[in-house]
Design a protein around this nucleic acid. Structure first.
Length: 707
RNA sequence: CGCGAGGUAGAGCAGCGGUAGCUCGUCGGGCUCAUAACCCGAAGGUCAUAGGUUCGAACCCUAUCCUCGCAACCA
């Protein structure tokens, strides 16, 4: 492909009904930001747009539940989300919002053009209507009995019990979840986008044109959809929240959120143009523009199938790349808003960036880890231990330390100035290191052009690794000891530090798209201006002037302590617990306490068979791939044994260590999740399901019998 | 059910027809300029399972199992 004249980068519009978590960040916004910075460093003409998606049924429903207005909800989240992005260094050229006047008119114009060109079809159907709430009901807001399994609280789109896909008409005794009343059927007509008419185009465009240069997950997903046959898709709905359908009789109808949201990229571009005095038109109409979408895998169909059809019908350019990541899990489980199993950007910012020992360096630390584990080809997993390891052993130990020792040595052995390069005494090691700098630049450039962010970032760190190795082999601190009898050795020292310093300057350029704050701090240390970060400067060793005096080094990153990650893991579990408690309302007060029936009578000998003893938990860890299990190491006095206990939802490992417990010592061993459990811990269970240890009232020797 | 993506050393991943590789962790040694950092070396894998194609398969084909997505919230 020839070099495009300009680039337009989009990152999926975040839905403004709540805070966004690091999965969102890693999936779309961070890679988009890296790509944007990479292109900007090459002085390309590029615009990076994003904004809040503020329509759809979920927001007004949420407003109703919270006793507020839809407007209040989006006004609350829009600025926070934008600020979170900014704090983490996501540098949008514009962060727009779909509730803006400009967006409404843009989306309406878009619809009108398709409508008047006869590209849309209309259909009349009967839909459920809630008379009390005076609204048509989305599938999700209708409950009824599942025709398949008889479950009484199946939703209009799916039965959660048996998993069957449903449509509202199939439900027996449908009930509106808004009013609790039985909805009536009411006729309504809507506009549809006849995707089926564009199958041939999509087939050719995706499979033939982009079959090779798009990621497998995107192509595969699209192929699946196309092969399955495309259906006309409704582009309007009956709702009072959203972009009004610009047709005379279309009262109470708005554009369906999936139709209006991607148009948000266009309106954002227009707003950017207004703000900067530029022209937005070429970005959407000129074939010399490269349009790149960054999204998560749930969004593939909208960006690779539906939106391209819309753009084609409207006469716009098509995306050159639709780059989708898979999902990022967190500590062994999917991230979930409803279960509160997530790390929000806001939380990370409060706990790390806004702390005294944090700052933008901690924003870069998160960026580093998220890129290092980016789910580019398959789902990946964020763990706090992994975060700590990556920061401490790679960022701090390899990159930060290399820069630091280079500067310290330069101050000690070269009087704080960039030493000259004595070409007459260059060694093979010197030459190889010079080459490595050039090669790394090429590799990083090529990988970024292919959207391989993880590999690209690795190459940058790897150059620091090579630098460490180079320095170790040259050992200028040893050479310095021979200066008294051999003053010419200073040339060897000069060459080493000259190259190390030049490599640091290169590192600043190459790390800049990934860790922009770090790059700036390095500029400060080198006393050079931001212009040095231009990508074309990378790969050479002529970045720092000989004789130029540089500042004292500052540490680029700090280490993450064990306590910090322990705290985060505990917090994660606590938040999740709180969400669980909130979603399962405690049994109603008026209900009689529900005591378990008393079991049949036994004789003393039956009881005597059970060997109960006091043990002390000396170690505990969560069993992988099991929500409820903790693997406990229990000191029984006469021996230490492993017991797997289903208490992980109630206690963190840290909470149980040191606890004395009552153990059924002679229970037959049982293997759970591959771990043999030798015994059982006695727990008392409250009516609300919370668990309490059955333990001696005073500390008792481990191994004491209980009878 | 179906379709898509994935299942490779303790962890995270690369390789996608020709002697199993990288980072981290572990173990051993070296160095000391550096944020108890750095360098060197070692151990560790029947490449999900079972068949097949091939001179040769982690890689291609077939079947099966598991995870995630399409399909609440949701990148």
């Amino acid at each position: 492909m020839s070099t495009p004249k300009r680039y337009l980068i989009t990152a999926a519009l975040p839905y403004a009904n709540g805070l966004k978590h690091i999965g969102h960040l890693a999936g779309a916004y961070l890679p988009a930001d890296v790509y944007n910075r990479f292109l900007k460093a090459q002085l390309k003409e590029v615009v990076f747009v994003c904004g809040s998606d503020e329509h759809g049924t979920a927001i007004p429903i949420q407003a109703k539940k919270e006793g507020t207005t839809a407007q209040a909800i989006i006004d609350k989240y829009h600025p926070i989300i934008e600020q979170n992005f900014r704090t983490l260094g996501i540098e949008f050229d514009i962060y727009h919002r779909t509730s803006s006047e400009l967006h409404h008119t843009t989306a309406q114009e878009f619809f009108t053009k398709l409508h008047t060109d006869g590209k849309l079809i209309t259909k009349t159907t009967e839909q459920y209507f809630d008379e009390e709430a005076n609204t048509f009901l989305a599938d999700r807001y209708i409950q009824g009995t599942c025709p398949n399994c008889g479950y009484e609280h199946a939703y209009g789109d799916q039965c959660e019990k048996c998993g069957t896909s449903l449509s509202p008409e199939l439900l027996i005794n449908p009930v509106s979840t808004l009013s609790g009343k039985t909805p009536i059927k009411k006729e309504t007509s809507h506009w549809y986008l006849p995707l089926n008419e564009h199958e041939a185009f999509l087939q050719d465009w995706i499979l033939n044109t982009h079959g090779a240069d798009w990621r497998a997950n995107v192509v595969g997903q699209c192929k699946s959809w196309i092969d399955g046959g495309l259906q006309p898709r409704a582009v309007t709905r009956d709702l009072d929240w959203g972009v009004q359908v610009p047709v005379k009789d279309a009262v109470g109808k708005v554009l369906y959120v999936w139709f209006d949201a991607p148009i948000g990229y266009i309106s954002a571009t227009k707003q950017w143009a207004l703000n900067t005095g530029k022209d937005w038109q070429p970005y959407w109409n000129d074939a010399d523009t490269q349009l790149v979408h960054f999204i998560g895998k749930d969004n593939i169909v909208f960006h690779a199938i539906i939106f391209p059809v819309m753009l084609k019908l409207h006469g716009n350019i098509l995306p050159s790349f639709v780059t989708s990541n898979e999902f990022m899990n967190l500590e062994g489980d999917k991230m979930s808003t409803s279960r509160n199993w997530k790390l929000e950007m806001e939380d990370y910012i409060n706990d790390f960036v806004n702390k005294e020992n944090g700052g933008a360096a901690m924003a870069d630390a998160l960026r580093y880890y998220l890129t290092a584990i980016a789910p580019e080809t398959k789902d990946s997993e964020f763990t706090w231990k992994g975060f700590q390891d990556a920061v401490n052993n790679e960022l701090v130990a390899v990159f930060g330390n290399y820069v630091n020792r280079t500067f310290v040595l330069m101050h000690k052995l070269c009087k704080g100035k960039v030493p000259p390069l004595h070409t007459a005494v260059l060694t093979d090691a010197d030459e190889q290191f010079i080459q490595a700098i050039a090669q790394t630049t090429q590799k990083v450039t090529s990988l970024l052009e292919q959207f391989k962010f993880r590999d690209a970032q690795f190459e940058v760190i790897d150059l620091a690794r090579k630098g460490n190795k180079y320095m170790q082999e040259k050992e200028p601190w040893i050479v310095a000891k021979t200066l008294a009898e051999n003053p010419a050795a200073q040339q060897v020292i000069d060459n080493c530090l000259h190259l190390c310093l030049q490599s640091c300057a290169n590192l600043a350029i190459l790390i800049n798209p990934f860790l922009p704050h770090t790059a700036k701090q390095m500029l400060y240390m080198m006393k050079v201006v931001e212009k040095m970060l231009e990508w074309k400067n990378a790969g050479t060793i002529r970045l720092l002037k000989v004789g130029y005096s540089l500042r004292e080094p500052q540490l680029l990153f700090r280490k993450i302590d064990d306590e910090e990650i322990t705290y985060q893991i505990q917090k994660l579990h606590a938040m999740s617990e709180a969400a669980k408690a909130a979603s399962t309302p405690p049994p109603a007060e008026e209900q009689a306490p529900n005591y378990a029936p008393v079991k049949p009578e036994i004789v003393f000998d039956d009881f005597a068979k059970i060997d109960l003893r006091v043990g002390t938990i000396v170690a505990a860890e969560k069993v992988k791939k099991a929500d409820k299990l903790l693997q406990l190491t229990v000191d029984m006095g006469f021996e230490t044994r492993t017991i797997v206990s289903g208490i992980a939802l109630h206690f963190t490992p840290e909470q149980v260590v040191g606890q004395q417990v009552t153990v059924v010592t002679n229970l037959a061993p049982r293997t759970m999740r591959g771990i043999e459990s030798a015994g059982m811990i006695l727990m008392a269970e409250n009516a609300d399901g919370t668990l309490v240890f059955v333990q001696p009232a005073q500390a008792t020797a481990a191994g004491s019998t209980v009878s």
